[in-house]
Design a protein around this nucleic acid. Sequence first.
DNA 1: CGGGTTTGACCTGCGC
DNA 2: GCGCAGGTCAAACCCG
Length: 189
Amino acid sequence: MEHYPPILFPPQPSSSSSSSYSSHLITHLPSNMLSNNQVFGSLPRNNSSGLLGLREDAKVLSLEGHGAPQMESFGGAENEVNAGRKKGEKKVRRPRFAFQTRSQVDILDDGYRWRKYGQKAVKNNKFPRSYYRCTHQGCNVKKQVQRLSKDEGIVITTYEGMHSHAIQKSNDNFEHILNQMQIYSSFGV
DNA sequence: CGGGTTTGACCTGCGC
DNA sequence: GCGCAGGTCAAACCCG
């Protein structure tokens, strides 16, 4: 892996995501992401634009090699969370983060335990998107996993929310991933 | 038997 | 208002 040319997420021809791409790169990945994961709450907020038709800011960095993720920051990506929503209650929005990985497997072993709660076909993509929730009690972190139809080797993993607990199993793999991201992030800024 | 997955139905937001 | 697409629910199912 000599260099990792940053690439933009390919704009989808879908009509719903024709907005401009304004985005931020994460300039550093706190190592405490492995332990207390406060990083998910510390992103800058910005306007949002489309990523694969989602309401998210996205700039994608590309890393070659299996398991090597691209960090993708959703600058102000605030998605809607309607947990226990009541009529008239304000929607809570939380930042989302996506990793683009070139991998044969969809699921990155990030050390947390996830339970799949849904799968949906996505427009303009022949691969379905899978929805996962952290199984830890009281932790409602979610993630979405989707493979690019344009490049079957690329998997987008979108994290949503902050883990409120420690990692539940060995995170060697994810630590490796994070290390790569830290290296890589120095390119972005 | 407990925990995770599958999958169709349902809900909601958004664009036309 | 309607239809579409994304997101979630939950019952049935599967597996260790």
